[in-house]
Amino acid sequence: MCLPGLCVWLLLLTALSVCPPLFRGLMPRTLDSQITMEKTPSYFVTREAPRRISSMSRDTKLIVVVRNPVTRAISDYTQTLSKKPDIPSFEALAFRNRSLGQVDTSWNAIRIGMYMLHLENWLQYFPLSQIHFVSGERLITDPAGELGRVQDFLGLKRIVTDKHFYFNKTKGFPCLKKPESSSLPRCLGKSKGRTHVQIDQEVIEQLRDFYRPYNIKFYEMVGHDFRWD
């Protein structure tokens, strides 16, 4: 993972299935002038991940992409529905008792968005100064700005700028322009950019109320208001 250069873990909201020394052996060697990055969709919410990553390298820098937890839950459900069309409705999965406003926090799509709980676990092993949070919303509206801040966090010169992106109207988000070594622009695959399932507005409001205290605490912990309300 970081032999001997800087290690970066992109915690996109899988645990390490192998012990750190073996996992390190799967990574390419990194020179002092290089950065090796690893990303897996659920490191951030896997309880054992911080301890295992810390035991491998306490100097690791961590990048976490977060988005409005209500939108994230609906996106999660939309993705699952595309693979399992017979699953219960979003509302049935999200609530233990909707009339009483009892949200089912055992459903993974809901629990992932309780960011402050997961961050508390990471802060037991890494200082906040080694964790950078990327706004999923701004990554769409201002990709160069968000990646500029990532480059600053990593101590890199700002090379990726506005000129590297174009907005793909079909996908609904920015894509990379054609690199010199390729004949085609680069964009995320067919599984990305799906139209979200339509959810009753009252359900959305109930979930916003549920997440609000968790969001506020998360803002306080990271020192940034993501304005998800």
Rank of each mutant, 00 (worst) to 15 (best):
Y77W: 06
T78R: 08
Q79E: 14
T80R: 12
L81F: 15
S82C: 13
S82R: 14
K84S: 14
P85L: 07
P85Q: 11
D86F: 15
D86I: 08
S89E: 12
F90Y: 13
E91R: 01
L93V: 08
A94V: 01
F95E: 05
R96N: 07
R96V: 15
R98E: 09
S99E: 15
G101D: 09
Q102R: 08
Q102G: 09
Q102F: 09
V103P: 12
V103I: 12
D104N: 15
D104F: 05
D104I: 02
D104E: 13
N108F: 04
N108Q: 06
A109R: 07
I110A: 03
I110F: 04
M116W: 09
L117K: 11
E120I: 11
E120Y: 10
N121E: 15
W122E: 11
W122K: 09
L123N: 10
Y125N: 11
P127H: 02
L128I: 13
S129D: 11
Q130A: 02
Q130F: 06
I131N: 00
V134F: 03
G136F: 00
I140P: 01
I140A: 02
D142E: 13
D142R: 12
P143N: 05
A144E: 00
L147Y: 02
G148Y: 06
G148K: 07
G148R: 07
V150F: 06
F153A: 08
G155Y: 08
K157I: 14
D162V: 06
F165C: 00
F165G: 00
F167Q: 03
F167C: 04
N168M: 02
P174S: 03
P174T: 01
P174Q: 01
P174G: 01
C175D: 12
L176P: 09
P179I: 00
S181Y: 14
S183P: 04
S183I: 10
P185A: 12
